[in-house]
Structure formats: C-alpha cells, structure tokens
Design a binder for these strands. Structure first.
Length: 938
RNA sequence: GCCCGGAUGGUGGAAUCGGUAGACACGAGGGACUUAAAAUCCCUUGACCAUAACACGGUCGUGUGGGUUCAAGUCCCACUUCGGGUACCA
C-alpha cells in the first residue's frame, strides 16, 4: 500500500478539529510549558515558504513537550493593525478592516494545511476591541504612574502628588523629563492645569514636545526602529526631523532594569549584545564649567574625565538652550546664520556628507582645573538629545574633536605618552598620561584607567561635578497620525488630556470614509464625525456637541504598531476575560513564555518594548514574571533562490548556462516553479509568457540549464515558492520535515525545492516499515532483535538531545539512518515501531497519527509518551581504536569495551603492524584517548 | 568606524572536551527491475597519484599566512571576504 499523504493529512486535520485535540486548559496537576511564535502581520501577499519556518520549529518543540507530559500552551494570533492595510485603503477606498479579515482568512487557510498544534480557540487579533481594550487599559495605567528611581519601580501617580503637597520636589528621586524644583507651598498654590502640566513631566505615558521622525509622504511620525537609513522602513519614503507634541512612553526609566534583566534570560549573546548597544549605558562624569566674565555655568558629560587637561574648546549642540545665553552680540549674526543652515539640513544630509561645520559663540569657558579660558563653539556634531547637549572637546584623543580642531585650526594637546597626534587622534583608552597636572592633582604617569578613576574621585570631592550614568535608550514615541491603529482613550479639556474612565473601555475606533489626513493637516480620525466624549453621560457623542462644558474632543492620534504586540503573550493566557487582561490565576499558572521564536529583526523594537511593557505590568502587579520571554530562538530568514535564463541580445533565442560565454546575453529572471534542478521546462517556459511562445533555445546535452542566485524572496524575482503548492505535491509532513532538514533553524538560507525528494522518500520508506506493497500490516508483537533495539534506542537518545538543542536537521538525519537500518534488519517489532512513531510525531504529525491508529491505539499520538533511551542497549562489546604514529592514522584495532589504557597501550606496542610503523625505534610517548585513538610518538 | 556572526565537495549541510573530515540528503555517473516510463533497489562520487584487475596503499585537502600541540575545521595571532546590527552617544 502506498503512502497516501493527501488522504491521511485531510483525515487527521479534520479529526483534530472535531476532537479539539489542541485545545488546552489550565491544569494544575500538570507542569506548564508555554511556546510562542511572534504573531504575524497578515499581509496581502499570503504566506510564502519562508514564513512557516519558525512556526514549524516551535510546533515541533511544543509537540515534543506535550509528549513529555507537559501542559503546553501554543497559541497563534495576528498583529492586525498596521500600515499596509491603511495604505491599501487610501488607494482603493477598501476599509482596512475588510482587507485585514480577508488576509487573516487566507493566512489561516494556509496555516491549517501545515498541521500545526495551535490552540486556535485562544486566537487574538490586535484590532479586535476585546483585545485592544487591554492595550488602552495599559496605556492609562502608564499615564497614571511614575517611576521611582529609589525603589526601581513604577508607582501610582497619587503617591507623587501626595509628596508634592507635603515636600514639593525636595528629596525626590524619580524619572522625569527635566529637573523641576518647587516647594510644597508652590505646588499647593498651582492651578489644576499647572499641576497637570507638572505631572506630565513624571508620568510614564506622557505628552511631550519631542523631535520626531516625521515622514511627510506617510503623514506620520515613526519610531527610531521604523526608520532605516533616513527613509521609512515601510515604503522607503524620506524622513525629516520635526518638533511635535506626542504621546511618549518613559522607556528610558527602565534602561537599567532592561539591561540587568538580560542576565536572567536565555537569549543568544548576539541578541543580548544588540539590546545592550541599543540601551547604550555609559558611565562618565558630569562637570560644571563657568563662563568667563559671566555668572552662567553649564554642564557637560564626558567618559574621559582624565583628558580634562587637553580640553582646547567646548562645543554646544545647535538646539541647546545654552546657545542663546552664550552667544555674544558680536557673534550673533554668524551664529544665527549657522543655526538657520543646520535647521535646513536634514538628519540624512548631516550623516551623508559629514562635513565639519560650526561657529564660534563668542564666549569662553573656564577649565576648572587649569583656569584657562577656552572658546565655546556651536556645531551639529554634538547632539542635543544625549548627555547635556554640550561637550568638552579633547582633539588629541577624540577623532570627532580632532577633525573639528583641524578644520578650525584649534590647538591640540597630546596627553598620552608616545601618542602621535600629528595625523590623527589617539582614541584608545590605554597608555600612560602626561601633560596632566596642576598644583592640586597630577595624573602624569598613571594609566588611562587609573586616571579616569582618579578624576572621578577628584571631581566629586571638589564638587566640580558628579559621576553620572547615561543611556542612549530614548523614550518611545507613542502617537501615530494614522487611522488603522488603537485609538487613545483620551479626551482634551482646556488643552489638557484626560483619561476616559476605565469602566468605559474599550473606546472603539470610529468609522471614517476617508483614510487620509484632513485638509487642515489633522490625522485621519479628524474625519470622524462622532468622536467626542460626554463626561455627563459617559458616552461617545457627535463632534458637533462639543461645548467645552461636558463634551470634549477625543484624541485624534492612534497608537503605533508595537502597542498591540507588547503584551499579547499575556492575553493568550486568558483570551476571553473581559474583566482583566489576564486573571491572576491564569497568570500565575502560565507565568511567562518559556520558548519564544521569531526573527532577529525585532531585537531593538518589539523585544525592547514588550520587555518594558511587561516590567511595567509586573510593577503594577499584573504579570508575575519580570521578563516575558525566558528563552528566545531567532529563526533565520528564508531567502529566495532565483533562476535565470540567458537571452542572446536582440533575439528571442535563449542559451544554456554553460554556453552563454560565447554570446552577448541578457540574464532574465525565470519563474522558479517551471525549473527543476536548474533544468528549464521549455514547454512551460514557452507557455509562461506570450512573447516566449516562439522562443528558441541553444541547449547543452539536450537540456537548458539555468543560472541561479540567492536573492530576497519576492514576486518581482519570480522566486516565490508557495507552501500550498508543496503541500499539494508532497504533503504537509514532507514540507515540515524538509524545512527543518534545510539547515539549522537559526541560520538564514535560500529555499531550494530540489532536495525535497530525499525527505519525501524517507517518509515513504518509513511507511514501508508498516505496510508492504500489498497493504499487509507488518508490525507484530514479539521479541526485538538486539541490533534493532540498538538502532532505535540510539535514535531516541539522539532525537531527544537534538530537539532540546533545537538541532532538527541532524535529528532528521538520524531518523533516516535508523529507518535504513531497520529496513536492512527487516525489523517488524511492533514495540520498536511504535516508539519510532512517537519520535516522528512532532515532525510528521499526520503520518504519525495514522500509523498510531493502525497500531491499534485508541487515542491520539499527541497523548502518547515520549520514549526513554535505555543505555543498556547501546553498550558495545568491543571498541575500535584508531592507531596512529606521530599523529598519522595507520590502522584500526579492536579492544574489549572495558579494557584499560595500560592494557591497550601494551597490546598496541606488541602488535605486529605497530612494529612495522615503529621501524625498530622506541616509542617516546603513547597517548590513549578513551574509546577513540591510540597515538604512538616515535 | 564600532559590535556580533559566518567561510567545509558540484549543492544544502554533519563533525560533544582539540582525537585524526565530508555524516545525512540533493545532484551527477553507472547498473538492476520494466515493452517503456514512473516508482523502487544496488554501486561510484573531495582532488591528485598508484594499479591489468582484485585487494592494499600514498600525497594534498575545512577562506589566507603564521603559531601552540603527539594531534587543529575546532585553540592563539595577523589578514582576506561575506552577512547582520549600529552609527557623530562625547
């Protein structure tokens, strides 16, 4: 009987649905295991063969864990808010909700064919009001919280107002936008509006005037990680800097905890490094500089306090508030002109040409150690947003300062012995200091590291400044000028934001007919006619009723993509709960994600935001674990493998790859689906496009050989392979196994359908162990042969280890070896074959179910028990040693498995063959590597 | 520039602690079965040398150049090159 995968897969997919095989419930009697994939954005193009890679990998793990007796949560959902649906809506007028649902349905159809063990009963969609209820709720929580630096935790804002009313800002140590100073008295005298304005400086979700990445073409701001090379990640449109009032999340408050948390989770080092770099912790010193002939002082941040004796000028960022204060009347004109010029240059231009520009402010600062007057310059190589927006420049030991000094002909004082600074600066933090002394302190003779420490101490003691830690991590901008996103549950009274009361959430996205910004430049929600909040009736009402008494306009921005994806893993734990994001009970049971699988492109976006979001919820008592994703695996990208044909110039004749050098040819992409093993199906090619109907071919060995290259998988390269097609031709089990067989999960690799036959053959061969050609069922109960026991138990050990290590490709190889051995051994032992079925179940679930049923088991193979390797069967009587001379392998000898090194050594030296290789010399040394090698050094 | 990760046959890729490369699979070549095809099965397949043949054997081989070691794909130093991240972060 043949392996009829089509029938088998259809049968079992149906049965899984009917019997709710993959529905999971909280079960205190079992240990939990939570497997999660990064949920997809359902794009219009559907799935290609690369998308399911991570899902298959995690599905295998989920099924494996279930077979080991864990209660496994393996959910799936959709990140269904986003730009493409909205862009499509703008172009076609089609409502994004409709395209989104269509796309989701298409995804679902495709996913269902692959046989995942997802519990679809727990599906979430970020655009579903029942879901974004909790996104809005979390936002309000953040609005009503501040971050206490002392206790390293978010706390309710009431605690802060209480403090203010008693002590003002005295002794306050909290995360804030700018340092404010007021007394309790002053606070108590403030109007409500003034108080609200002050609180905005401390809230974790706050409205802030910030420089944003504005994309005029998309009409929206973008987060830093949505901007790539100065253009938008989606669409590739130019992005400019613009100051806007935006909702922000005080992610920066969590910088240290985000850093520390990395130590407690099992992620790859490269991913942790990427996050560390993104957070960018840097320990340094803040130092005060007096301005000459003025009572102004300003603060700079430096990591190289040791180089203070080499400061020859100071630089302010053009946007710095100090610029106005330090510009002298004589320099006013030049400075204004410079500021005007830098404003016009976009970030992109600044990075692209990297010209040294700047202007002298006219003021001088006093070096606190040398008392020398040093000029203060203004230049755009100093950023307003980092540190204090002002630096001390040490051209000898900083390449940027060096370039500036050379350009404007400023002095360069070397501070490190032996450093040649005539051509370039010496930036390395190593060497012995010189030229660094005054009456009070000398760094001369110390190493750089010692000097940094010495200066920190000195600066602190002399109150010249303080030791300070800076982070590169910025607050996240949380407003988007878009339609297709979560609306903010916020209304505006007297220009101040107020939260719509929690019990009236969710605030549902209103209908609009136009998805573009309004004519007055407001976001698309400006088109909504029913978008005002009545505080009297607590309901959304018509805009026309806005009266500034009880009815107020609602926020027109929506939330960004990462809002909905930041806590979805918690929602899967309790998706139908309408009282809470997740019940305490379910949260307590599932804890956090044990294994998270997704692309590394989210390293500095989603994976930072959701860690932040979860830490915040943890602080406020809603998530038991501080870290959301315990172990993380990055699956690699599946690239496309394009095929080419070569057309001879100005003809309709195509020449095969091997002969193309003889002609002048143009390579053209050809649909990979009409090419097999790089051989073109000529008839299919002729039929592919009308202009090729009468194409002619120059063949080699009667075949047309195509060229190939690895490129991104995309329609325009004609290299998209659809999983449906593979499933149709080979079956889902073959697809699943082949995707894993292709190489390590973490590695990026091109999709090449060519090798798939091997895996398919393997499944047929496995089937052949159960059924002969006539359809007789072969397995019978009885005693297994010793060698079969060994083959199978070797496999159990290998596969178990490999799955744990996520090394699926080697594990599939092991299956192939084992099945070959069993075929050779003509093994028909029912017991052993049953074990094979369980082992293969995570990889090829449909086939496994079918065989499991044929073996007479009444329940699903999903509820079988993972076999355990019995080491007894693996024991060998004898072990083959490789005997080498001077490191060169010469011959093999067998020894009893329990022979000790001395016995082996002696036997080898006595052996006739050894005598031959030793040529009468006496051996100097004999090394016995247990179970492997005997090396004789002569 | 900085940080991270790679480089192994015609191809995808194997190879715990350093243990004597190329597992497994594809492709290719040859053969068996078949009227034929498909399917299936068997043999060969890193390069070079040796050999009438069978058998046995030799040299070189994991991006390049050095080094450590009885032994290096694996460790160390320098470099080439390809990915990924990040970028005036003081």
């Amino acid at each position: 009987m043949e392996y009829n995968f089509r029938e088998i897969e259809k049968k079992w997919q149906q049965r899984w649905v009917e019997q709710k095989t993959y529905q999971v419930t909280e079960d205190e009697s079992k240990k939990k295991y939570y497997v999660l994939n990064m949920f997809p954005y359902p794009s219009g193009a559907g799935l290609h063969v690369g998308h399911p890679l991570g899902y298959i990998a995690s599905d295998i793990y989920a099924r494996y864990k279930r077979l080991q007796g864990f209660n496994v949560l393996n959910p799936m959902g959709y990140d269904s808010y986003g730009l493409p649906a909205e862009q499509y809506a703008i172009q076609t007028g089609q409502h994004p909700a409709i395209t989104t649902v269509n796309n989701i349905n298409r995804y679902r159809q495709q996913l269902d064919k692959i046989g995942f063990s997802f519990d679809w009963n727990r599906e979430v969609r970020t655009c579903d009001p029942g879901y974004y209820h909790w996104t809005q709720w979390a936002f309000q929580k953040m609005f009503n919280s501040f971050y206490c630096n002392g206790c390293q935790q978010a706390q309710p804002i009431e605690k802060l107002t209480e403090w203010f009313s008693k002590k003002g800002t005295e002794g306050l140590d909290v995360a804030c936008g700018e340092e404010l100073h007021f007394s309790a008295e002053q606070w108590n005298r403030m109007s409500e509006k003034e108080q609200q304005n002050v609180l905005m400086n401390y809230r974790i979700a706050y409205l802030g005037e910030t420089m944003v990445n504005w994309c005029p073409k998309l009409g929206t701001v973008l987060a830093n990680d949505e901007v790539v090379d100065g253009v938008s990640e989606r669409g590739g449109f130019p992005v400019v800097q613009k100051k806007m009032r935006q909702w922000c999340l005080r992610v920066s408050a969590y910088a240290q905890r985000l850093l520390d948390g990395l130590e407690t989770i099992e992620w790859t080092d490269s991913l942790k490094d990427a996050q560390r770099n993104w957070i960018g912790r840097s320990e340094g010193t803040e130092m005060e500089f007096k301005v000459k002939d003025s009572d102004v002082t300003f603060t700079i941040f430096t990591t190289r306090a040791d180089t203070i004796f080499g400061v020859t000028f100071m630089v302010l960022a053009p946007e710095s508030e100090l610029v106005a204060a330090l510009t002298t009347p004589a320099q006013q004109q030049d400075v204004s002109a410079y500021l005007e010029r830098t404003k016009k240059r976009t970030e992109r231009e600044r990075i692209a040409d990297r010209k040294v520009t700047g202007v002298f402010s006219g003021s001088y600062a006093i070096n606190p150690l040398t008392q020398e007057a040093i000029p203060v310059w203004i230049s755009d190589y100093v950023l307003a947003g980092y540190g204090t927006g002002a630096i001390m420049a040490v051209p000898a030991h900083d390449s940027r300062d060096y370039a500036f000094a050379k350009h404007f002909d400023l002095p360069i004082i070397p501070l490190i012995e032996g450093a040649d600074v005539s051509e370039e600066s010496f930036d390395a933090k190593e060497g012995i200091m010189m030229n660094s002394a005054n009456a009070d302190i000398s760094l001369n003779g110390l190493t750089v590291k010692e000097s940094i420490a010495a200066m920190k101490k000195y600066v602190t003691e002399k109150k010249l400044g303080r030791v300070k830690v800076n982070y590169r991590l910025r607050d996240a901008i949380f407003s988007r000028q878009r339609y297709w996103g979560e609306p903010f549950p916020v209304y505006y009274k007297d220009g101040m934001p107020y939260m719509i009361p929690e019990q009236y959430l969710p605030v549902e996205l209103p209908e609009v007919t136009d998805f573009k910004p309004t004519e007055t430049g407001e976001p698309p929600l400006g088109h909504a006619t029913r978008w005002a909040w009545d505080t009297a009736s607590n309901a959304i009402v018509d805009n026309s009723k806005t009266d500034n008494q009880t009815v107020f306009p609602i926020e027109l921005n929506t939330m960004p993509g990462f809002a909905g994806s930041s806590a979805y893993y918690l929602r899967y734990m309790d998706p139908y709960n309408n009282k809470a994001l997740v019940s305490a009970k379910n949260d307590q049971y599932w804890q956090n994600v044990d294994l998270y699988v997704g692309g590394s492109e989210h390293a500095t976006g989603h994976l930072i935001y959701s860690r932040f979001w979860n830490k915040f919820l943890h602080d406020t008592g809603f998530s038991v674990k501080e870290e959301p994703f315990q172990k993380l695996v990055n699956q690699g990208m599946i690239q496309g493998r394009s095929n080419f044909v070569y057309r001879i110039k100005d003809t309709n004749t195509f020449v095969s790859l091997g002969l193309k050098e003889q002609y002048e040819v143009t390579p053209l992409h050809v649909d990979v689906n009409i090419v097999a093993n790089d051989i073109l199906d000529i008839e299919a090619f002729k039929a592919w496009r009308p202009e090729y109907n009468d194409a002619e071919f120059i063949l080699e060995d009667g075949k047309y050989v195509c060229g190939w290259a690895v490129e991104k998988m995309s329609k325009s390269m004609f290299n998209v392979v659809n999983p449906d097609m593979i499933v149709e031709r080979y079956g889902a089990d073959t697809l699943r196994m082949y995707e894993m067989f292709l190489g390590p999960v973490e590695q990026s690799k091109p999709w090449d359908t060519n090798g798939i036959d091997g895996v398919h053959r393997f499944l047929k061969k496995l089937w052949g162990l159960f059924f002969d050609r006539d359809g007789n069922f072969l397995p019978v109960a009885g005693e297994a042969s010793k060698e079969s026991l060994k083959s199978v138990h070797k496999l159990i050990k290998k596969v178990t280890g490999d799955i744990e290590a996520f090394s699926y490709n080697t594990s599939i190889s092991a299956f192939m070896i084992c099945v070959n051995e069993l075929v050779q051994q003509k093994c028909n032992n029912k017991d052993l074959l049953s074990q094979i079925v369980v082992l293969i179940a995570p990889f090829a679930p449909h086939l496994a179910e079918e065989l499991w049923e044929q073996l007479g088991n009444p329940t699903s193979v999903c509820d079988a028990q993972w076999p355990v390797c019995n080491e007894e069967y693996l024991k060998e009587d004898t072990i083959r040693y490789t005997i080498s001379f001077n490191g060169k392998a010469r011959f093999n000898m067998e020894f009893p498995a329990d022979a000790d090194a001395a016995t082996i050594q002696e036997a080898v030296l006595k052996d006739a063959q050894s005598q031959r290789w030793m040529e009468g010399k006496t051996p100097k040394k004999v090394i016995v590597v247990p179970r492997k090698i005997v090396n004789v050094v002569v």
